[in-house]
Amino acid sequence: MKRGTEEVVALRHGAGGAAMRRLIQEVLIRDLETLPFEGIGIAAMDDGAALRVGDRWLVLTTDSHVVQPPFFPGGDIGRLAVCGTVNDLAMMGATEVLALTCAVVLEAGFSLADLERIQSSMVEACREAVAPIVTGDTKVMGSGELDGIILNTTGIGFAHRLILDSGLMPGDRIIVTGNVGEHGLAVMVARHELDFEGELVSDVAPVGGLIHRALVAAEPHERGVTAMKDPTRGGLAGALHEMAAKGKVGVLLEESSIPITPQAAAVGELLGIDPLHVANEGKAVLGVDPAVADKVLAALRDHPLGRKARIIGRSIPEHRGRVILQTGFGRRLLAEPQGELLPRIC
């Protein structure tokens, strides 16, 4: 985007797609020191970093949360801030959280009652995730200097075996742990005060326990769970694109297998927004060796958060970096979301 001759940051740079990746690679992490020790650093652009500690990996991740409106059906920014970080840890194999930090930036004028609601919701989410917040920071800025509240959480946890988002191999089955699109659509409906019948609620939840089950089920197998990613910004499409590109494979999806409620599908169609492009906050996408796919699926479905888990496709050696959707009528590319998603206005 240009203002006069000066290039400026645009909203699409934060939308989880190609523009954001370019901003991070070309500006934000340029010239950062590479790790002086064994591990996964910032250049990998995974869900977090991993540092070797003895025979285990210390996984470290951080996430800032800004959501408008801060309260939405199914959750609020507090629950989101805990779950987002806990889930990023889980995606690298650290399903048990050692500790969280929490930084709060508030706009002068923010309702104290709202802040208390957000805080209780964080307490509740921490309890569910078995994740203690051990330190924090608070700042207040002038009215108009930010939009209400920003929450940042950082989390650490140990993993015995690291799982990366780059591990897909041809033939791996792709599993998604439940209905997709609900968080993003619920927030959009709330944000635009659209009046739809029926409940569309955010799926925001900590998935550490769920992922732990899957990893245990796959454990005896040498490869087992080969890759993981949480389909947050950019949705299922964004997550699979990243996994396909990093794993140097193609991904072939069966559209009819992708779990999505009729409600989410209908709201998506009305707004002109593909539910596969919108954020989920309580889901994971797993690449699984075909030998253990059924076992992993059964373990996921045995957990309350994984009842709707499905095998939705597989990775293929052709079409590296591309995601292909079999629609039942034909095939097409599932493109990466390009910019800020806006409901169709015309």
């Binding site: 590319l333 493109a335 390009q338």
Partner: peptide, 27 residues
């Protein structure tokens, strides 16, 4: 984001539609 022709602007334009679906609608 930076359209040259009108076909890339409107959600009814063929360029915009093709672009949205990855640029190769028939693969």
């Amino acid at each position: 984001e930076d359209p040259v022709g009108a076909c890339m602007v409107s959600s009814e334009g063929s360029c915009r539609i093709w672009h949205h679906y990855g640029g190769h609608p028939d693969l």
